[in-house]
Design a protein around this nucleic acid. Structure first.
Lengths: 144, 144
DNA sequence: ATAATAGCAGACATTTTTGTCCACTATTAT
DNA sequence: ATAATAGTGGACAAAAATGTCTGCTATTAT
């Protein structure tokens, strides 16, 4: 469904969100350990999220990644997914055509669009705030 | 969503289904041309579908690929997808964990399972017969 | 029997995704 | 100022997905 990079990106964002609630900045090592991901690769993904202004970073000692508390409930999964995987998952054709639409639909167009729209809606209505609360309350987990 | 191989596999199956309705066997070249896919790669995918007993093949002159007419409405998309992509799309975790379930859910487990189940249901209830009818009636297309 | 057709199997090549390494810059504490 | 910390950027490496080629086997028509 999502690329590996995107999966790491979502996990990392949730962890950083959860830490940001208590105003903690977290370092790369800490993130990679918390979400069980390869450190150097995770670094690349955090850079993408930083450039997309979803998370923020500070260099130097006591530096690290964080999210502005005020933005926590405005950041939803769709922002993270499109920052990393682009919007193929919202716009793409189920059979891989790049010019499939209602005017000239592929064989599974309507069936597919329905699912895709539901996925889109889910991603757009699930915020980092909610997800980080689940983590805090022990209702969900970011590593195994 | 699906791999490229799977997209080709679905398109090819629909084309072969549509031709099988009029008892036509179709050769590799014909399939690749009909669905606008690389010939040699398509060959590999048709072999997978043949081994999975979804489509059938006959060698020699007048040979080619075909589907038994009686099976047409029993073959649904889910069989094709799992033959090529496996069942990750039905069972896999949205965040890539391989032991995520209701007992120890990842952060997006419930949201994700809902979408995944709808996708599964869609794939299980969409048959090659229906899809090939759409093609025959000019309601849908297999290439651009 | 032989030639032509058509799918099969395995090796190979290319591209994309995933993952690593290292030198560099910015920041902070001393 | 300097040393230690922490993110950045670019080059590189490994693995997986996509795509190609070539020779083989099975079938049919003549």
């Amino acid at each position: 469904m999502f690329s590996k990079a995107c999966e790491y990106g979502i996990r990392a964002s949730i962890f950083i969100a959860e830490q940001s609630v208590s105003d903690n900045k977290v370092g790369l090592k800490e993130v990679a350990n918390a979400i069980d991901s390869p450190e150097a690769y995770t670094s690349k993904i955090l850079q993408q999220l930083t450039r997309s202004n979803i998370i923020h970073s500070e260099k130097g000692p006591n530096g690290g990644y964080f999210i502005h508390n005020a933005e926590l409930d405005a950041i939803n999964l769709s922002a993270i997914v499109s920052a990393i995987d682009g919007d193929d998952i919202y716009k793409g054709c189920g059979l891989g055509f790049n010019n499939c639409d209602a005017n000239k639909p592929c064989s599974i167009h309507y069936q597919f669009v329905k699912i895709r729209d539901e996925l889109k809606h889910m991603l757009e209505t699930t915020s980092l705030l909610t997800l980080s609360e689940d983590i805090n309350e022990g209702l969900a987990f970011l590593r195994r």
